[in-house]
């Protein structure tokens, strides 16, 4: 017995290091790819007038002046003011609805026609409602973003719950879980957490894209800055604010991926 377990422990120890080291080869190749992209951009910009494609350097200068004037920070803060509540509310409702319909057959059968009708509506088509219900401003933009987050999370959670093994539910019942809500809490939610978290992560990214679209009707923020700059052919400003979106997406996505890896370390 003792020897048996220690043998098995050795086998276990060989499963690989828990901490994933940064692969230097991958890092190098990534930096090379990025350098190549910027190089190509720079080369292309020498062949075109600045209002078609400004050089990376010109964009860097613009970023600097936008930060110096505080315009960029204000725009970013404005966008965050509708991005954050929109994402949080849409994600929460989407996960809740996905779990509910994924778990309850009655709800699923009753609401599937409603889902089929509403699902194909693009969030931007609801701008009229956003303005009518929430006005031109943060609340309206948050509404658009929430719709986008809702569906991604709805389907991720729904799929996750559908995939929960019946055997695990049987085991939980045989161990004394009697009520439906108990099964949801003790088995369904933790078992579908990987899918739910993938949905949240996808939703967060999509919501940054929706930030631009949601500001089309006048809410202040990064998207607003992009539209205004485009109208006056200030392409360097367009690119500068697109870069803000990229950086924000990268930061939030990386942070969430770290959280995901930590929460799902049991996998």
């Amino acid at each position: 017995m003792a020897t048996d377990v220690s043998n098995e422990l050795e086998r276990t120890d060989n499963l690989g290091p828990i901490v994933e080291a940064i692969d230097p080869r991958r890092l190098l190749l990534g930096l090379l790819g990025l350098a190549g992209f910027v190089g190509l951009w720079w080369f292309g910009s020498t062949l075109q007038p600045a209002y078609i494609l400004p050089s990376p350097l010109a964009v860097a200068v613009t970023v600097q002046s936008e930060i110096a004037s505080g315009t960029m920070q204000t725009a970013l803060l404005d966008s965050v003011v509708h991005w954050l509540p929109g994402t949080v509310v849409g994600t929460t409702l989407g996960v809740a609805a996905g779990v509910a319909l994924g778990w309850s057959r009655v709800l699923d059968e009753a609401l599937t026609p409603v889902v089929r009708v509403l699902r194909p509506v693009p969030p931007l088509a609801l701008i009229g409602f956003a303005i009518a219900w929430f006005g031109i401003g943060h609340a309206g933009a948050a509404f658009i973003i929430a719709i986008g987050a809702f569906w991604i999370n709805f389907y991720a959670a729904y799929g996750g719950v559908e995939g929960v093994s019946d055997d695990l539910l049987d085991v939980a019942r045989s161990l004394g879980v009697e009520r439906q809500i108990g099964l949801v809490r003790a088995v369904v939610l933790p078992a579908s957490l990987p899918e739910i978290m993938t949905g949240i992560r996808t939703g967060i990214g999509r919501c940054w894209m929706l930030v631009v679209a949601a500001e089309i009707f006048g809410a202040p923020g990064i998207g607003r800055q992009i539209f205004r700059s485009a109208n006056s052919l200030q392409v360097d400003r367009v690119i500068a604010y697109i870069l803000v979106l990229s950086v924000m997406f990268l930061l939030v996505d990386t942070a969430f991926r770290l959280l995901q890896r930590r929460v799902l370390s049991w996998r």
């Binding site: 045989s174 161990l175 088995v187 078992a191 957490l193 049991w266 996998r267």
Partner: peptide
């Protein structure tokens, strides 16, 4: 007339709760 704590069940495929530790699995019931 249904599964319950008076019946202890062990399946071939273990069916442990992967998100719980060993102690968490044993303590579930």
């Amino acid at each position: 007339d249904g599964p319950g704590p008076e019946l202890g069940i062990v399946f071939q495929e273990y069916h442990l709760f992967p998100w719980r530790t060993v102690a968490g699995n044993v303590g579930f019931g």
